[in-house]
Design a protein around this nucleic acid. Structure first.
Length: 237
DNA sequence: CCTCTGGCCTGAGACGTG
DNA sequence: ACACGTCC
DNA sequence: ACTTCAGGCCAGAG
C-alpha cells in the first residue's frame, strides 16, 4: 500500500517526555513472529511461551530510557483490519493478553482497553500520536502515526512520523482519560516473572533499575517539559 | 560531478561475549 | 568489526 | 483497504 500521509523524520531526543499510544499488536508483531519461528522458543517451566512478556518488558524499558512514555492500546484483534497481519498470522491468545496486562500493571505503565479510548486520548491531546499499522490509522483517530520506535535501549537515533489529514473516529469532547505512570512494583515483578515465568532475577533487577532511573529523569525535567508543551500550543494558534 | 529522492526488492529480535 | 549463543 | 515494515541499493533528477 502506498503511504498517503506526509512523512517526517525527527531525532528521538525531540520526543523526551512525550506520551504516545502503542497498538499492543504492533508492539508484539515482529518479535513474537520471529522468535516463535525459532527452535529455541522462550518458555516457562510448563512450556508456555514467554516471548510476549520479554518483548513488552524490554520494549517498555527501551522506550522509557529513550524518554518516551508509552500507553498501550488493547482491543479485540478482529475489530480492525488485520493489524500487522503478515506478522500476526498467529492470534495472540487471551491468556497472553492478560499476562501482558498484569505485567504492565506491575510496571506502572498505563493501558486502555478499546480503540475509542485511544481516540479520546488523541482528541484531548493526552497523547501525541500512535504507533500502529497504516490501515488502522483512521479508525484509531490518529493524525500522527509513529514509526521506528526505539524499543531497544541503544542504537536508534531517528524516529518517523506520518501525518494524515483525515480520521474517521470522533470522540465526545467531554470525555477525558487520565494517564499515570507509576513506580514499578519490584516485588510483584519478581514474583511474576522470576517465580512463575523463570526470568533471571539478576537480569530482571538490572532492568527494573534502568526503568527507575528513567522515571527519575522524567521527574527532574517536568518543568522543562511543561514549558515545551506551552510553547507547542502557542505555535499551533 | 555531486547529492538527494523515490521506487523496487528483500528479509524479518535484542543483547552480550569471544 | 563479525559471528554466535543466550534470553526463558 | 484485504501480504507489512524498514533498510539497502540503484537509477534518474536537480
Amino acid at each position: 500500500m502506498k503511504t498517503v500521509g506526509v512523512t517526517k523524520i525527527k531525532n528521538i531526543k525531540n520526543y523526551f517526555g512525550e506520551k504516545i499510544g502503542i497498538d499492543i499488536y504492533y508492539a508484539l508483531s515482529k518479535f513474537v513472529y520471529t522468535l516463535d519461528e525459532k527452535e529455541t522458543k522462550l518458555t516457562d517451566n510448563d512450556g508456555n511461551p514467554t516471548t510476549h512478556l520479554k518483548r513488552i518488558f524490554d520494549g517498555t524499558k527501551g522506550l522509557l530510557m529513550n524518554g518516551i512514555k508509552p500507553v498501550y492500546i488493547f482491543y479485540e484483534q478482529s475489530k480492525v483490519f488485520s493489524t500487522c497481519s503478515a506478522y500476526n498470522s498467529q492470534i495472540i491468545s487471551s491468556v497472553e493478553i492478560n499476562e501482558i496486562k498484569r505485567l504492565l500493571t506491575y510496571l506502572g505503565i498505563p493501558f486502555v482497553n478499546s480503540i475509542s479510548e485511544c481516540t479520546i486520548l488523541l482528541k484531548t491531546k493526552e497523547i501525541y500520536g500512535v504507533a500502529t499499522s497504516e490501515e488502522n490509522q483512521k479508525s484509531f483517530g490518529a493524525k500522527i502515526l509513529l514509526r521506528d520506535l526505539p524499543f531497544q535501549e541503544k542504537t536508534k537515533t531517528l524516529m518517523t512520523e506520518v501525518h494524515f489529514n483525515e480520521v474517521s473516529s470522533f470522540a465526545d469532547k467531554d470525555q477525558k482519560i487520565e494517564l499515570k505512570w507509576r513506580q514499578p512494583d519490584e516485588e510483584n515483578l519478581i514474583k511474576f516473572l522470576c517465580n512463575e515465568k523463570q526470568f533471571n532475577e539478576e537480569n530482571l533487577c538490572k532492568g527494573i533499575k534502568k526503568i527507575k532511573e528513567s522515571l527519575i529523569k522524567f521527574r527532574q525535567t517536568t518543568l522543562h517539559q511543561y514549558f515545551k508543551k506551552g510553547k507547542k500550543q502557542q505555535m499551533k494558534k
